[in-house]
Design a binder for these strands. Structure first.
Lengths: 102, 102
DNA sequence: ATTTTGTTTCGTTATTTGACGAAATACTAA
DNA sequence: TTAGTATTTCGTCAAATAACGAAACAAAAT
């Protein structure tokens, strides 16, 4: 039997994965917020104040960014300090750079 | 009455819109294909041959990229020649560049 | 031991997405 | 006029997403 193969590369898959994670304005906002405040501690509540959504919804968006590897949360009870994951950030930047400039 | 405002910028919305359009490996594949073959005519069927999905499914992905403005189709019966929309491409590149480098 | 606090998880709901095959479209060739 | 061709649209379905409020958690303060 001939099985149709997956025909996209792992680069394409990774690019799509990061793109998907950034495919909602709230998540772009979160990333912008974390970059702008990279020197400070960023808590979920700080972002919640600036967004018109429920805290539970924000929490879901944070989880998606975490699952995509773009951010990480450091527990500092009862807070959780969020920051971008530098390694993934650099990888994502590289993928988009490759995608757009060639 | 106080209505909670939209708190993300139009830049964030546009970035998310493009990111969402690129949030599937098939669509990244399509964009890669169109860039790589920018000098040739690119037909839906050419891409269909390299992908493990139904033609109707591919057509839907093409529509999504078209709706996001990233590609355009020039009718050349019974073919449709696809190519990237340079204007949107440049805008998207600019948005991601701004997003990642600042 | 109880309460308070910031955050997440759960349960639910409505909408969107991704996939397929069948049917429609629109033009060309016979 | 009929048949053929490349592609899209339609109808359907299952799965994923986005949203909410209520409930659960985990540590700190009372």
């Amino acid at each position: 039997m001939f099985v149709k193969e997956k025909n996209y590369t792992s680069t394409q898959e990774k690019t799509a994965r990061y793109a998907k994670a950034l495919g909602h304005p709230v998540r772009v906002f979160i990333m912008d917020f974390l970059i702008k405040n990279a020197d400070k501690c960023c808590y979920s509540g700080d972002m919640a104040e600036e967004l018109p959504i429920a805290r539970s919804t924000l929490s879901q968006h944070l989880k998606e960014l975490k699952d995509a590897g773009l951010i990480q949360g450091e527990i500092n009870p009862p807070y959780i300090k969020y920051c971008i994951n530098k390694t993934s950030w650099v990888e994502a930047r590289g993928l988009f750079d490759l995608f757009f400039n060639r």
